[in-house]
């Protein structure tokens, strides 16, 4: 920032106010847990920011019989608490309650987690992928709805002219699970994440985070499991399929090399299926 220039800080109380600031070039400030680390990475803080935490509509979780709406400014802790006990959302709850550490979870938001596009180890991405979530954006041209897969792929460009406002989830899951593998018990970013869900048609959805730069569905494994008999929902069998259909290119990072991330996927699938079988929906 040039000397003498005062930083512009808008705590928007409506979405319109936020969009106005955004049009002026303000960067979106959610919980701050990502942006506030930028100076340490040699990136200056933006000259103008707009904070979303005062917009009521973005700070609540609405749970309806057939769907759930999550505001982008909802924190991990609030999300985990709100969906705790809601059948089918075990995986999303585990993601919200297992990410980072408790202090960060009280601050970091759903929107922030999804918009940190250089953060491959985000827990919510694979968890929302298996929910087949819809991301609602407010763009300069108006609202826009987008599937989570497409959003994750294109968010780099999408976010130049938009704010993530809400996440919409159908309540069509009977069970889900979220298995993360940090190198310690917890506290470091997982080197691999496997999220799994079973929908009302007993079809299994599987997504993988942190292994590649962007989380994605494991379509090859889903198809293999769908082709098999219903007994395919067996931990060992699922791990066997995972080994056979492992089409991931592990990314090399400071904490782990790509081969390791790739290699641990079958055992994580095994754990995930075991966790699924323990849920109320499948037990």
């Amino acid at each position: 920032m040039a000397p003498g220039v005062e930083r512009s800080f808008t705590a928007a109380s409506t979405l319109e106010e936020a969009m106005a600031a955004r049009r002026q070039g303000a960067a979106v400030l959610a919980g701050g847990t990502c942006m506030m680390r930028d100076p340490r990475r040699g990136i200056d803080l933006p000259e103008a920011v707009v904070a979303l935490h005062r917009i009521p509509a973005l700070s609540k979780v609405e749970i309806e019989p057939d769907h759930v709406v999550i505001g982008a400014a909802v924190t991990h802790v609030v999300l985990g608490r709100a969906l705790h006990g809601a059948a089918g959302f075990e995986g999303l709850v585990a993601a919200a309650q297992g990410a980072a550490n408790p202090g960060i979870r009280r601050v970091a938001t759903v929107g922030g987690n999804l918009c940190a596009f250089d953060f491959a180890a985000a827990d919510l991405s694979p968890a929302l992928l298996v929910c087949e979530a819809t991301v609602e954006l407010e763009t300069f041209k108006g609202p826009k709805l987008l599937g989570i897969s497409d959003f994750l792929k294109d968010r780099h460009t999408l976010l130049t002219e938009a704010i993530v406002t809400r996440i919409h989830l159908r309540r069509d899951l009977i069970a889900s699970a979220h298995i993360r593998l940090p190198l310690r018990k917890a506290g470091d970013y997982p080197v691999a994440i496997v999220s799994l869900a079973v929908d009302k048609d007993k079809r299994c959805r599987i997504a993988v985070g942190s292994v590649e730069p962007v989380a994605r569905r494991w379509t090859a494994l889903e198809q293999a499991m769908a082709a098999g008999p219903p007994s395919a929902l067996d931990p060992e069998r699922a791990a066997g399929f995972a080994l056979e259909h492992n089409d991931f290119q592990g990314r090399d990072g400071r904490e782990a090399e790509g081969w390791y991330r790739r290699q641990v996927l079958p055992p994580l699938v095994k754990r995930g299926v075991a966790a699924l079988l323990k849920t109320e929906g499948l037990a």
Partner: peptide
Amino acid sequence: TVHVDDEAVPSCLKPVGL
């Protein structure tokens, strides 16, 4: 760690504006 509205949060990542 400090308490902000009774919640324990890291103050290093909390911009004072929030």
